[in-house]
Design a binder for these strands. Sequence first.
RNA 1: GGGCGAUUAGCUCAGGGGUAGAGCGCCACGUUGACAUCGUGGAGGUCGGUGGUUCGAAACCACCAUCGCCCACCA
Length: 917
Amino acid sequence: MDKTYRPRDIEQAHYARWEANGYFKPGGHGEPWCVVIPPPNVTGTLHMGHAFQDTIMDALTRYQRMCGRNALWQPGTDHAGIATQMVVERQLNAEGTTRTALGREQFVERVWKWKNESGGQINQQLRRLGASVDWSRERFTMDDDLSAAVTKVFVSLFDEGLIYRGKRLVNWDPQLHTALSDLEVLQEDEAGHLWHFRYPFADGEGYLVVATTRPETMLGDSAVAVHPDDERYRHLIGRDLMLPLVDRRIPVIADDYVDPEFGSGCVKITPAHDFNDYEVGKRHDLPQYNIFDDNAAINDDAPEVYRGLDRYVARERIVADLDALGLIDKIDDYERKVPRGDRSGAVVEPYLTNQWYVKIKPLAEPAIEAVETGRIRFVPDNWSRTYFEWMNNIQDWCISRQLWWGHRIPAWYDDAGTIYVAASEDDVRRKYDLGKDVALRQDDDVLDTWFSSALWPFSTMGWPQQTEALKAFYPGNVLVTGFDIIFFWVARMIMMGLKFAGDVPFREVYIHGLIRDQDGQKMSKSKGNVLDPLDLIDGVDLDTLLEKRTRGLMQDHLKPKIEAATRRQFPNGIEEYGADALRFTFAALATTGRDIRFDLGRIEGYRNFCNKLWNAARYVHMNTEDVGSAEPEFSSADRWIRSRLHHAAAAVHEHFARYRLDLAAQAIYDFTWYEFCDWYLELSKPVLQADDASAELKQGARRTLADVLEAVLRLLHPIMPFITEEIWLQTRQRAGVEGDTIMLRPYPLAADFAADEDAESEIEWVQQFILGIRQIRGEMDISPGKALPVLMQGTTDTDNALAERHAALLQRVGRVESVRALDAGEEPPAAATALLGDLRLLVPMEGLIDVDAERQRLAKQRDRVQADLERSRAKLDNPKFVNNAPADVVTKEQARITEFERQLSRFAEQLEKLDRL
RNA sequence: GGGCGAUUAGCUCAGGGGUAGAGCGCCACGUUGACAUCGUGGAGGUCGGUGGUUCGAAACCACCAUCGCCCACCA
């Protein structure tokens, strides 16, 4: 092995071999285990959120696979209707043509071409991350069989009356010219105005003042509403107003919806352009005046002067015209929610159109019950409340989109507009018994992308065919996703799964946090704080990073700021950390239910951990080259590290079971660094490097080194697949294990390594001894190379036995020259002191040690113990404590007092001795 | 308006009714044949505030403060 760990030398080759050998496929044995990837947009590239999520899924999958499960991680991509159509349309525009010029058929062909040539970049990036998805099962939401599943679900919901078509107000994106579901609309606070207009009464006497944030919609007003109990206006209910500029008579109506406290207490009602007004209009049977066209410009039903004007141009004109008529009461500044499309960013318009809807309540009810009864469990549990909150107030789902890229709705119309729904035109004719003479036209709309995503857990398994995969891997065990997607996807999968696949789609939903930057900011292009996971793996120089962060910025003026911030944070670009360090960082940060600040300090620390492991392996290899034929004899240290590994493995299994990858990572890290490297490797040296150690003991140490290293690699593999594979391949013979890859080796069980209380307490004694001496050395500024003589005062038989048995360890690891117990009656010399229970370790001074410094050091330690003692005494002096606390707590407290008192008297003796010098 | 969460060392975060933890950073020392991407030692916190429950609260409860997120139709 090279002296230094270099991730780029090892990662890609191992992945290629794993993939070529089919190691990612379910092994076919053991209980099935399955997780489906949340299919990334086919247009997408890997961002930090993906990398985080995929690391979690990969760690879980590798863990389950090594635990002997028939494990499947199902990959694939989403056709992402709007996003993909936008990408290709942009290309067409750059070529000087348009989607409409091309026509539907050619455009769709063009998108397929783009998909086949440029789509799915993210799959290559997933490989760099080490994702052990079964590529042979890769699916795309518009594959033939998945599309067939979509059609089948649509037809069957329609036949059951759960899908209907209706003319209603929808969220209309006037830029993309499509309807959007409620979830795809983001409400943002934006500064605006509240205009107060005077609407004169039709009989010419007086006026009412109405307040609005959208003056242009007044062209579509069909009433003014007041609260029925509002004394100011009660007597005016039923009278008519004359709508200015339009000259339409509109009534004053009474409705509870009006808040008398707000504005003037009079609300203009525009049923065709506001969701509330739409409801009010229905209640009062008001006419709906649509004043917009598809672009949200004024249409031809409005007064001529405004026709063709964009909504905002019209707004200005209308305000000016009302002003000229003296009909403006006042204009206040006002902050209002502005609805914007999540893809286009355009202000969404409530707009009357024909759309397809899913009647959702009948589907929601069983889905709510599935979580209530625990058939599906959220991890952490509090997300179930968010889920219930939404599901209990769920609205019918608008599933039609006026796009060309997607699953075309399987509905046909005859010339009379009758709707026929079946899988194909032929099916329609058969099903509805229509002759060849009946002309049929297919609906132009496609389905919301999330409609097909909702079927993902079973459509990828071959549904509606009852495939082996469906039987084995549905329901999946867990879904791993972010909270932002609970409504979009999780809820809908649960509804569709229960309806069509006969069971919940997964048993548990692991919700992870959002990756933010080091300051807690969301990562976004416009903020210029985006980190590319690939840059963390491979490293990137400053110029490239600057270029990436400023290329294609929507707002050019942000560029200098982003550049400056980037230069400040990454003066030398980003170092190469490797996929394993990145993955370990994600795992270590994967605390549930909390956003995560991505801190470069962490990834650097974990890259160093890789290096530590690498070098520990080098040491092990160096010492296990010639494996002799001797029977191994295991020393206390050997048995100690095995026992520690027993506990570590048990802890890791517990943490995985609770999805606490952070704790699992921490447990392995601690064991590897602080027990295996810091202690065991050091404790093995005196044996392996001593001429007088027996061949059997040496063999015991060699075997232990190899066994423990090999097990650590397996423990670590789900989180760090590459480095563990690399080292493991070079370790396997030394550890006497078979296999072509660590991936398919069993995960270590606690039972594989014996717990050994005796060895643990023995080695703990050795550790305390050495730590005591190190502390003296460190604080007394004694050179680390100087071997110290140590005298023991107040030894028990055990102490004497341990000191003798482990003399070599104490000498070598503790840099101790000699260890000797004081004889009975022997006067201890002036010395620096460390306490080891009852035992005192004395390091004679003889010019080594500064008396005053030692006095101060001991006094400090004494004061600490004194403080502890006083706290304990106060407790025990309190009869309530003694009477009420559990007996073992009281006993423990008493024991502590005894111990503190003993230590204090030791300190006192030593200090007194120093004083006499 | 409804819901959820956070507040612990300089920074990023674990923990959890009985002794306050890690990484990074900081200080000192160090080329001991795995590792300076390292080793050894050290400094550093009245666990946001106030009340309550309890023998005992940083932890449980209530309220408050600050910050954040999600949902919702006040024109």
